[in-house]
Nucleic acid binder design. Sequence first.
DNA 1: CTCCAGGTCAGGT
DNA 2: ACCTGACATGGA
Length: 300
Amino acid sequence: MPEVLRSANHTAWSPWTAVDVSPAFSPAALAETIDGGQMFRFNKDAEGAWTGVWGEYVARVRMGENGVIEVSFPKGRAAETMPALRRLIGLDRPYNTYYASLPRNIDPVIDRAMHSCEGLRIVNLPLGEALLCFLCSPMKRIPQIKIVLENLAQAFGTEIMPGVYTLPTWEALADVDENSLRRCKLGYRAKSIAGTARRIAEDPEFLAEVESLSYAEARKKLEELSGVGGKIADCVLLYSGVGNLQPFPVDTWIIKAMSDLYGLKGWEPEQTSLFGRTHFGNLAGLAQQFLFVYARKGGK
DNA sequence: CTCCAGGTCAGGT
DNA sequence: ACCTGACATGGA
């Protein structure tokens, strides 16, 4: 974590402001929403507050009294950052309705998973940023993904506050060779990022087109990119909001959860993803996130 | 030392 | 259509 963020800098940040939302975040839900594998750019400090960067925005978030979250912004930036943060973590979405629409009455597994993380939301990152983040993700633990992305931000992003860097744009990455990417500890994923940067440079409307397509078509289009298979395409679409809440990303944790909790022994990822979308309908991505959290906590 | 991690792809049946 | 190994890096 950058030094400037480690110690409270009262001149740089607005006072903490309570944001009352419904449903309320449980502490677990807040942690899982902003720092549980949907996003990788929020870091927790010694006081328990997270500081995060997305797009050109920076914000701090913490759990306040009585389960009400509190937020703080760079001084003078509250007016534009508050609505951006609300969009990022889904505060203006009807999650009470979403929760009531999941099949918890007929499915005790999803009911238990939802109880374990009351208030969980799905984030809405900029599409290009979600793509970059999940291209760094295969065969890495979440802490390692966060380190690699911080390396990329410091090497090729923009410093928008002392010690705070945005992720590089795809335009910026198009000018970076694969070996320079490897120095950010990307390993073999450097090739995917270089290839994707090249494709987007040749076809500047690529991401705008993805945003205009249906979920199924958008998924297919993203899979044209190097390093993007079904799982990463689903993560990119889910955590950017482009696929609404339909995508059901299937990783090793979801394979384990669906095998252990739903009896889908030996099912392939594509089969499992279709099962999720069929069983949970157009909120499959939200159900997936509850199951992901539940599986990682060992079913507690 | 060995094993595995929010997978994908190329190269073989 | 399926199956298999390779792919970088770091932590347990």
